[in-house]
Design a binder for these strands. Structure first.
Lengths: 179, 179, 179, 179
DNA sequence: AATGAATGAGTATTCATTCAT
DNA sequence: TATGAATGAATACTCATTCAT
């Protein structure tokens, strides 16, 4: 099967890499697995990227950028602080598989960033962006607190055998939002 | 070098594994790296553990148990809610390398647990233990919130280029503690 | 569990080794597998035998001796040549699992003997014994032919998806027996 | 040494594997031994084959196909039943090293097929082919008998310290051929 | 520009064997 | 006498990367 001239191949590869990370975790994300997931010949990966590290870094950056945008969009449209509480609660309690995967990738990024300083700029930009979105409604320190709370609640939710009920999540968010 | 009788070898290997995880991350934690860190022949690892997965699982379990105990000890001795705020703030702002490593291992555990259900019991027990410790001073839901906040604050702190000042951390903890 | 003084342990180990060979084949017959099958500590094997080769050689010899005796017993009691045909047909068509295993071990022995001259004496003695048993009723050359036929028929039977009917086997044996 | 383009490498590896099996037996046929025999880097084996089992299966299949063809060619050119007896006798008594190796591989295949059902199709096809070749001159049941006799005679010959004289072999074959 | 066959360094793992107890 | 913890050499296998085509 020849498929010369495939302008969006780079992007397809990056998305495939993220899917593999979500499904199998970074330690088992290999060239071969990504190539198979992207339905792309093996040599294509090393043609477009200098190596696996490079590929993962770009994939994580893409993911962070996309999520930051989505986060901002979700929060921006909220009219007031009460709406903000609902939006953030939704964020934490999202049950769709896609959202689960997004968070799984996020935590994989965190774990990787602890060892790879080059990924710190990615995480830093992301955290800045999400806080900036919140700052339309709350002061910077509170934004920091809400952001951290969300981080922790989602993590616990993904690992917990029985998740915290939505009403409880809402209550905690409500408290965190009021200065 | 013959060292035929070595009764605490298992434990030494587990501790070495945790050191390697802290330094290099799970993806680069190999039999060889652990063996070198423990100053033990390679074959010793597969004698004591069925494989690398088994080794990591037991190492993480050991780490979780140790940290849960330390966490409880730290919180228990606190006289009242004000003392609790100080203790939790200390927890988040700890700067010693050892503490940094402890958290790095914790996040490596989280990332691994997302892919490996067998690790969920470890994370679950740990979360239960830390919340139980808090419940001496605050209601269960608040404990949940404090726990999540700590999780998120530490994560952000480890990844941030400029950490949140201690005073700010204290303020956020204070708010989270009051019901 | 201490079980000092266990006079038949050697024999138990040899029988366990034969069971392992029948189930998993020589390439996957290991010290550990035999020890487990014999319910005996690992060190016991290298205490009683100089190594795995020695163990297998003795096991094969034991098996050959036992089978030769059984073969002779089966053939000896036969009154005349017609009875011999029945006995040999029975031999080929035996369906019990135990008999299947016996043959599987025999062929494992053959394959091993091709590479290990030390095993040739075992196979030679066995072939001599089985022919000697037949020589009570037929001349030596015919005995040779019957023996070879049995060997080939059993082999084909064990590997075939659909075995040759008993009546056909009997017919072939009948022809081979008449000079 | 660079040898980038090598279109028949797969086949060379399979032939090398058969040589190793003939010389050392299946239990000692390792990736390394095959790679050395084929004069090919180690990684080449796992590139072309999924594992050692896969490699051996394909090698045995190749061997069986080749031998079935040779068998048929040998038997087909024979004019009548007397010629058939000569041809089969030749088959049993062949003394060339190459033929010895062929039989050694065949018995290794048998032993392996007893444990690996995937190899049964290979042995089955081979047996079918050799019988089909004989059926040009004798009825199917007789073909079965001749085939089994050959199998047994060759086996005994390879293991025997003193082989049966050719004249005796011929006599046995002659009897087996007449219905 | 793009590929996929090829490679070798590295991985996890197995296991016969040794030997202090 | 008997054990089982310990070892290291060898195994199967993976995979990032190279490079001729």
């Amino acid at each position: 099967v020849t498929r010369r001239h495939d302008p969006e191949r780079r992007e397809r590869i990056l998305d495939a890499a993220l899917r593999v990370v979500a499904e199998r975790g970074v330690p088992r994300t290999t060239h071969r697995a990504v190539a198979a997931a992207a339905d792309v010949p093996l040599g294509s990966l090393t043609y477009h990227f200098t190596g696996l590290d490079d590929l993962l870094r770009q994939a994580f950056a893409r993911h962070a950028a996309r999520l930051a945008t989505a986060y901002a969009a979700r929060v921006d449209g909220v009219g007031d602080r009460a709406g903000l509480v609902d939006a953030v609660t939704d964020l934490v309690c999202a049950d769709a598989d896609a959202d689960q995967d997004d968070w799984a990738i996020a935590y994989a990024l965190y774990a990787a960033a602890l060892q790879d300083p080059a990924l710190r700029t990615v995480t830093q930009e992301w955290m800045d962006a999400s806080r900036a979105a919140l700052t339309r409604y709350v002061d910077p320190l509170t934004a920091h607190g809400v952001d951290a709370l969300v981080e922790g609640l989602v993590m616990h939710r993904m690992l917990a055998t029985r998740p915290l009920p939505r009403a409880d999540v809402r209550l905690l968010v409500e408290r965190a939002v009021r200065p």
